[in-house]
Simulated scan of single mutants.
Amino acid sequence: MTHLITHVSDMVTLADGDFPNPSPKAPKGLDKTFGDWVAWAKWIAVMAGVLGLISCGIMMMVGRRNRSHLAAEGASGIVWVIAGISVASLAGGTVPMLFGA
Rank of each mutant, 00 (worst) to 15 (best):
M1F: 11
T2P: 14
T2H: 07
H3D: 14
L4W: 15
I5R: 15
I5E: 14
H7Q: 15
V8I: 10
D10E: 12
M11E: 08
M11W: 10
M11Q: 10
M11C: 05
T13H: 10
D16L: 13
F19W: 09
P22Y: 04
K25N: 12
P27R: 01
P27I: 01
G29Y: 03
G29H: 07
D31S: 08
T33Y: 09
F34T: 13
F34I: 15
F34P: 07
G35I: 03
W37P: 02
W37D: 06
A39H: 06
W40K: 12
W40E: 14
W40S: 10
W40H: 11
A41W: 06
K42R: 12
K42G: 05
K42I: 09
A45R: 00
A45I: 00
V46I: 13
V50S: 05
V50L: 05
V50D: 04
L51A: 13
L51R: 12
S55C: 10
S55H: 13
S55K: 15
C56F: 03
G57E: 01
I58T: 11
I58V: 13
I58A: 12
M60W: 02
M61H: 04
M61Q: 03
M61I: 06
M61A: 03
V62A: 03
V62P: 01
R64F: 11
R65W: 04
N66V: 07
N66S: 13
S68Y: 08
L70K: 04
A72P: 00
A72C: 04
E73G: 12
E73V: 14
E73F: 09
S76W: 03
G77A: 02
G77M: 02
V79Q: 13
V81A: 05
I82R: 10
I82H: 07
A83R: 12
A83Y: 08
G84A: 07
V87A: 04
A88I: 01
S89F: 02
A91F: 01
G92F: 02
G93N: 06
T94K: 14
V95K: 03
P96I: 05
M97P: 01
F99D: 11
A101P: 07
A101E: 05
